[in-house]
């Protein structure tokens, strides 16, 4: 199966720029009659860190969830790492193997230990031998600074620790892209920092990251680009300096004044 994928990858990738890891072209999505995403166009280069912000209900989570097919788009194209997302389950699985996702509510598996959470994907999806998967998992757990919790269950950890396990779990799959869906929104203030620190370290390794977040400090220090969404549309997209100091759009100005106002 790997060979077939490699073939389709090269054929599509040659058509597009080799640098673009994610390409979203004219993508629309509806929930029933409700038009949630309108004509989304986005290109993400390898190694780029992108922060997506916007008021709640603006479609930012929905957009990144379309990238690994947790949500289905109805019109337009999404090409991830040279593979187009269609109804073909093989294509979807191929993309999901390469795209890691971190959720607002962690979504760790409560019946498995931290270590088992981390090795499940590599063992069952990548067919990694168990010992090797465990070694890699311990390595990533060290990177997120909780190797001593490996034998515990998620329910025994704090929220910040759980989210760091979730990040380690995604990294164990060796993804090319990491999606973060409001990773700090369900955390207590003192735990937000430890998760953001982990994310900053990850960004420094050159990982391609798409991050839905309200942490504007993180956006300023880490992001290559900030995208502002409202009403299902991308309103504005710019480098962080420009975005924060010189927003172009009225909606952006209003949003920034609301979240930075105090």
């Amino acid at each position: 199966m790997g060979e077939v994928n490699a073939e389709t990858k090269t054929s599509v990738a040659s058509a597009a720029s080799k640098e673009d890891l994610i390409e979203i072209i004219g993508m629309h999505k509806w929930y029933g009659d409700f038009h949630v995403l309108k004509d989304i166009n986005l290109r993400v280069k390898r190694g780029e860190r992108i922060v997506i912000c916007g008021p709640s209900g603006s479609g930012k989570s929905t957009m990144i969830r379309c990238i690994n097919r947790l949500e289905e788009h109805q019109k337009g194209q999404i090409i991830v790492d040279g593979i187009e997302l269609t109804n073909d389950l093989k294509q979807i699985d191929a993309i999901r193997r390469e795209v890691g996702m971190v959720f607002q509510h962690f979504n760790l598996f409560p019946h498995l230990t931290v270590l088992e959470n981390c090795t499940l994907g590599p063992i069952w999806v990548r067919q990694t031998p168990k010992a090797e998967a465990e070694e890699a998992a311990m390595n990533y757990l060290s990177k997120v600074k909780i190797p001593e919790q490996a034998k515990k269950y998620p329910g025994q950890l704090s929220g910040g620790q759980q989210q760091r396990v979730a990040i380690a779990r995604s990294l164990c799959m060796n993804p090319r892209i990491m999606l973060f869906d409001e990773p700090t929104s369900a955390l207590d203030p003192e735990m937000i920092k430890e998760v953001l620190d982990t994310m900053v370290e990850l960004a420094e390794t050159g990982m391609t990251m798409l991050c839905v977040t309200h942490e504007m400090g993180f956006a300023r220090t880490v992001a290559d680009r900030v995208i502002f969404m409202d009403g299902g549309e991308i309103i504005e997209e710019n480098e962080p300096e420009e975005f924060f100091n010189n927003p172009q759009h009225e909606r952006t100005k209003l949003f920034l004044s609301q979240i930075l106002g105090h």
């Binding site: 690994n68 947790l70 999901r96 795209v99 996702m101 979504n107 499940l120 999806v125």
Partner: peptide, 20 residues
């Protein structure tokens, strides 16, 4: 969220049912 976490890892239907 449990289904989504399993899906986003690339687990197949029967795998995510059996394991998660």
């Amino acid at each position: 969220g449990q289904y989504e976490a399993a899906d986003s890892m690339g687990l197949k239907y029967w795998q995510s049912m059996r394991l998660i």
